[in-house]
Design a protein around this nucleic acid. Structure first.
Lengths: 352, 352
DNA sequence: CAACTATGCGCAAACGTTTTTCAAGCCGGA
DNA sequence: TCCGGCTTGAAAAACGTTTGCGCATAGTTG
């Protein structure tokens, strides 16, 4: 009995008279201790195969006493499943990819699946390199995520039978599986909130016109205003960059163009914060005279702003979770192609 | 010859009359095509073993035409090395762990090693769970990183022969390998810069007293001032939290206590930004009348502040890189135990 | 009591590599 | 001619699982 584990090559440490075998036990150690064959031991663990309950229990006991844990690599080699997915982030790992990543890790971790991290830094060569690496490691699936919401070309190279889900930035191929934020619904939340609180002279200030996140939201916002027989107070959206400085500048500009502006809907929280700074420095009370709504719910901005920002939360963590779930489905040969939109959430604080 | 690959179970797609075998080729496919045995093919690839150059070339050619890539799992099972390291972040994945993570991924990726991501969210149960998982996957090493710089107890549980490196938050066990930021040198950079630019009435405002990052830097700063026969202008450091709001409040306070203050050294960039906000609103010119130095070089803060912040960059990416390198050494049975300090960098902008 | 079915379990092949062992061929020297 | 050494490459044993097949034994039926 004490000689079980003999086969395992681990160092044997003798302490206080008792001989303790360290190093990991293998399934044949377990089988030997339980007095069965390896095959039987395997079946006992997996639940497959018929056997006397008593026999199964002997195996389970042996597993306990030997602290046996199956060798994943051997399992994977045999079954072809690695219980691993690759998470490829294309645009560096940043403020947007993190929550997605976390959500994915969360959803996958529950299912005993681990995440292999790859950062391509926007480099196609690196992307190919990582892709080959993931394939060599026989990952069960891949999640691709990027900072921008603009559509991206699908993963180049071959990923034979390995399913891919695009999170945050959708694939340009509509046959792929993509999970994105529902900009339409997000903008509706913001506009509806402003209208419901009696604002009608609304300005929209946002990021660069070559970002989908900017142009999409601008277009959608104008549409919703039109539905309420309104138009933007300055006649058009203002494109700039995603910075506080732009927020400060554009606020000045808008107030000059339309002094009776009663609300700013901003493309992100940094711009919104800049706007509030300008308003405060000009002595305009927020939200009493002018309301401000941001986008992203980035706490560093929303909480530090004066007053704290009302904003749209795009539920990035949820996007990550959903992407992971869709990937699991696809791995189980049940893919749901197309673009899945995750709804946003209005977070009301003090600025609107 | 066209029948090489017969054994591989991949689906065979027949298109335009030619029969193309998809799905990955195995080493025996290569061997068959090259007319050698599997063993020989393996040696040809690994460079070990002697053989006629011509034979080796035949194998290499076969590899090319079949687009063969070795099965990592089989390799790992055989050799015991998984070419994978676990990266465990204890405090959620955030602003501090990201750069570390990136640096590590960078340094490891160069050596064909991939990173398995684990987020424990500060939960010990989860930490244990992830640890077991990593062990089951036979990772070659583990990097543990956390948000706080406070020392943390070493990883519980068994990680038999698997080396561990602690990044950012060192292990309490000095026999472990830890890589941290050099706070002493960082504070010296800040204090020296202030002294060199003629400031002598310096305040230190920082985060919570129960954070090592706060108390350490406060103590070190006082020491350096003492070395120059100076003391803090308010007599003591001011502990609060890491927020802009605290920076704004404490700036008011300090100016009341010591109106002739000519410099603020802040525990992080958020506090520093808060300080500049208060100064600007009071009409105090920065840096002409009062200089401000931050800590962390968090661009979102430093660049948006008015004026942009001079700050200490703790080189987190470098910490990640160094941690990875130390881990590689340890994996090669050449560990360098103890605490390794990575120097900081003074980033001069407009506030000091 | 014979013939059958069900149950419980061992045996061995497979997964795709690496590595060790060993046989065959070739050469030169005695 | 025979032997020893060197080169080349084949064969086979590992690594630790999973799984299909088949053989006992026990339990049921005619």
């Amino acid at each position: 009995m004490a000689a079980a584990g003999m086969k395992s090559k681990g160092l044997r440490v003798s302490e206080s008279g008792r001989t303790v075998t360290k190093a990991r036990a293998t399934l044949s150690d377990v089988a030997a201790l339980a007095g069965v064959s390896v095959g039987t031991a395997s079946k006992a663990l997996s639940g497959t195969g018929r056997m006397r309950p008593e026999t199964r229990q002997r195996v389970l006991d042996a597993v306990q006493t030997l602290d046996f844990r199956p060798n994943q690599q051997a399992q994977s080699l045999q079954t072809g499943r690695s219980w691993t997915v690759g998470l490829m982030t294309t645009d560096g790992i940043g403020r947007f990819s993190i929550p997605v990543l976390l959500g994915a890790e969360d959803a996958l971790g529950a299912g005993k699946i681990s995440v292999l991290l790859c950062d391509t830094r926007g480099d196609l060569i690196r992307e190919q390199h990582h892709l080959r690496n993931l394939m060599d490691r026989r990952v069960d699936g891949i999640i691709v995520t990027g900072r921008r919401t603009d559509p991206r070309p699908p993963l180049g190279g071959v990923h034979d039978g390995v399913p891919v889900v695009y999170a945050l930035s959708p694939s340009t191929d509509s046959g792929d599986i993509s999970v994105v934020s529902d900009d339409v619904q997000g903008c509706r939340l913001a506009v509806d909130h402003l209208l419901a609180t009696g604002h009608t002279r609304i300005a929209h200030v946002t990021g660069p016109a070559h970002h989908a996140a900017a142009t999409d939201r601008a277009r959608i916002t104008e549409q919703f205003l039109a539905d309420a027989s309104l138009r933007l107070v300055t006649g058009k959206p203002h494109f700039g960059d995603w910075s506080e400085a732009w927020g400060r500048r554009v606020a000045e500009m808008v107030l000059r163009m339309a002094p009776d502006t009663d609300a700013f809907f901003c493309g992100n929280d940094q711009i919104a914060r800049g706007v509030t700074d300008t308003l405060r420095e000009r002595g305009v009370p927020v939200p009493e005279q002018v309301a401000v709504i941001g986008y992203d719910n980035w706490d560093t901005m929303t909480l530090a702003a004066r007053p704290p920002l009302t904003t749209i939360d795009s539920n990035l963590t949820e996007i990550g979770r959903v992407a992971a779930l869709r990937l699991l489905e696809a791995i189980d040969d049940n893919p749901a192609p197309g673009v899945h939109r995750v709804p946003c959430r209005l977070v009301i604080r003090d600025s609107a």
